[in-house]
Design a protein around this nucleic acid. Sequence first.
DNA 1: TCTGGGGTCCTAGGACCC
DNA 2: TCTGGGGTCCTAGGACCC
Length: 393
Amino acid sequence: MKLPALVRIIFHIDVNSAFLSWSAVKMMREGKPDIRLVPSVVSGDPSDRRSIITAASIPAKKLGIKTAQPVSMALRTCPSLVIVGGDWNWYKQCSEGFISICRSYSPVLQQFSIDECFIDMTVRCKPENAVEVAARLKDQVRDTLGFTVNVGVGSNKLLAKMASDFEKPDKVHTLWESEVKEKMWPLGVRDLLWVGKKTEERLTAYGINTIGQLAVLGMDSLTRLVGRKFAWQLHENANGRDNSPVETERAEAKSISAERTFSRDFADPKDIDHALFNVACIVAHRVRRHNFRASTVSMFIKYKDFTVAQKQTSLEQPTDITAVILNEARRMLTEVWDGSTPIRQVGIGVSKLTHENAIQMSLFEDSRLEYYREWDRQYDESHARKDDAPNRE
DNA sequence: TCTGGGGTCCTAGGACCC
DNA sequence: TCTGGGGTCCTAGGACCC
């Protein structure tokens, strides 16, 4: 017996101004007013001149305040701006609550970030009642958790994600393949997923301003503009096509990195080395916590004009030892830095991660190795409860 | 106005091997 | 003495995402 092909039904659920909404919920429980109704932002460290906005309320966005903008700039736009610091543990609780409601609608769930997920609803509803089911999910999140979400409904992940980005907050939108021309093609190219600032510049310089124009652009021209692989993806996406599945397995990390921006630019090698030491501790700790060993170590410095100098090196033996990672980073620093130009930021990353338990010999004499291992063990013990720093929503 | 922190993937060029 | 073509690995750099 041959069954008719099912139309895929994908929901993309996106928390509206996530960090800001979550902070608002917490503050209201403490009897404070709802910051979602006034121009307000969340920032990493409100007292740091260099901190940037990690989430903005809708009234703030209406004034032109954007995520990733410096707080000082936003304050000039709106002197009465309400600024709150983030609360990572609370955000994680909110995220878990939101994800678990979504999962109750379909176990075929892919968490895309702390505040976004896809669910495959193909066998759980029909195209005719998909909007009704999406609205139920949206209302349930709002009524039980106190914050709102947008739900995008479409026949693939791309369309669902594009749809959830339409009018906010607390809305359900559809973007079926049959609606692509009407709802997606008039939008600017920048609204298409994967089209960032640089790609937008290249496309508009060529006279391509809308997704519709991009959709009908010949592959030869597009390939010249953005390269073969990316050209193909943009062409498919602009035409509303995407056959990527909802991935329920969380992929293992491929790299781990940490970086620190100084409150002002530093040129003293002692200050730089101190920061390098700190980030090495953080990176190596995370490597050990995930039971990884890393075979590649990279480090970078960023100057005040934002240019970056970086180095990477392969290790003979994969490692999880702080001292080994720090040693490599220090060596590379001397190769990229003249020792006097002021530096804004330093970072260390590791990649080529494995779970092999390679015997880490020949790097040090046994007594040194034992010392370093013990040092790391004590570090891990005293930092066991510390959570990673919050990202942007 | 002056730009955080954490990731993924792709491309290009050089080294090296057969 | 000078030459091919293919493959893989490495490093550097750039673009995008939240």
